[in-house]
Design a protein around this nucleic acid. Structure first.
Lengths: 210, 210
DNA sequence: AAATGTGAAGTTGTTCACAGCT
DNA sequence: AGCTGTGAACAACTTCACATTT
């Protein structure tokens, strides 16, 4: 039995497509209807060839001698990334960081909606009233299934992270954005993106040593 | 005139060194005094050869037939990354995310201390009392110089990010951890690491499409 | 015998140079 | 003429295979 090979797009390309999409939105707001690879590449901080190569991984969208249609290209990238429809997300861990993420208005604008949050102490006092319902951990499976949620954000302490990840995977989550410093082990049908604040700082620390 | 070439260590290696360091700390807490590349690599989620190659970029620390001295290796990596002494950091933008970062106790433990914060409205009400002084933006240069700060965290809205970055660079900052969705332009003597929450989610969104 | 250190091979990602459309 | 699309060259990174040391 062989794995189906969807013509692999490099991970880095996927990241850059998000950046291009953002630039295209800005161009559209400024009323531009077409853009050359050079201009878009500059806006995104990459080389024009890089941009063109990235795009050809999933099709041909340009007109030679002219450039790309802003609206159309944005649409194609959105389709590919799956951000053209609103995506429900759950958040686990409503501490400092979790609360900040819940209050962050940037998500909806990008097509994501946090539909529920979970915490070990769902009723503990929080400094701020929140609009999202906070449930106990044992309701993860139920809520995820009922709402058809496929993505989750983990913002619990390192010690709890793997347990939470297991519960999420069990409930059918396909993608996890992990803010805990723990390394998560998941089946390879599940994608984990980790953001480790300490590592980012440590990395900078190396580069500032003259 | 030629650039001085400090024997380049790949960026990805620097990231992994942070991960190894974390694993070594854990091993030390568990009382282990030596470790083989295979064990350490497994803990870090990489192949043993990767680990060994990473280490040889800056020296030879192992004993053949035996492995590495946990304490010593941790020390060497710390030295290289520059995390063996407490590093003062400033934070700009005390909104939702900024406040969460200020309350995050994980930094100090990793060798970083947020010594001051800046905000366009330093006196606005916050839900929570903070231990770090919050100054107006125009005091960035002064505080950064007085305290010898070399690293900054940007947590302001996209529209303000470049202005803030300019002020920080002007004040002599060498490394910026950027949480705003803006693409920052800085002189190449300054290192920027960006964490873009929307892009991380968008990226997941691609991979969950069955 | 056991594990590290490392040149060489392999793989992945980036850039070049130019052919091919409009 | 101008700009995209792309095979081929190049660069960066990873893995292998094994020589080397304890």
């Amino acid at each position: 039995m062989k794995k189906t090979v969807r013509p692999e797009i490099p991970r880095k390309t996927i990241y850059r497509l998000s950046v291009y999409l953002r630039c295209l939105h800005r161009l559209r707001e400024n009323g531009l209807s077409t853009v050359r690879s050079e201009a878009l590449a500059n806006a995104a901080g990459v080389k024009p060839t890089q941009l063109r190569k990235d795009l050809t991984y999933f099709g041909q969208f340009g007109t030679r001698g002219l450039g790309y249609d802003v609206e159309q290209l944005a649409g194609m990238i959105s389709d590919l990334l799956g951000t053209n429809r609103l995506q429900p997300v759950v958040l686990v861990g409503v501490g400092n960081l979790g609360t900040a993420l819940l209050s962050y208005r940037g998500f909806e604008q990008e097509g994501f909606e946090i539909v529920a949050a979970f915490d070990a102490e769902p009723d503990r006092d929080r400094d701020k009233p929140l609009e999202v319902p906070i449930y106990a951990m044992d309701r993860i499976a139920r809520v995820v299934r009922d709402k058809g949620v496929r993505m989750a954000i983990i913002a619990v302490p390192a010690t709890a992270a793997q347990t939470v990840a297991n519960a999420l995977v069990e409930a059918g989550i396909g993608g996890i954005l992990n803010f805990s410093p723990a390394m998560l082990t998941v089946p390879d049908t599940v994608t984990v993106n980790s953001v480790n604040l300490a590592i980012e700082l440590e990395n900078l620390s190396y580069f500032i040593q003259q």
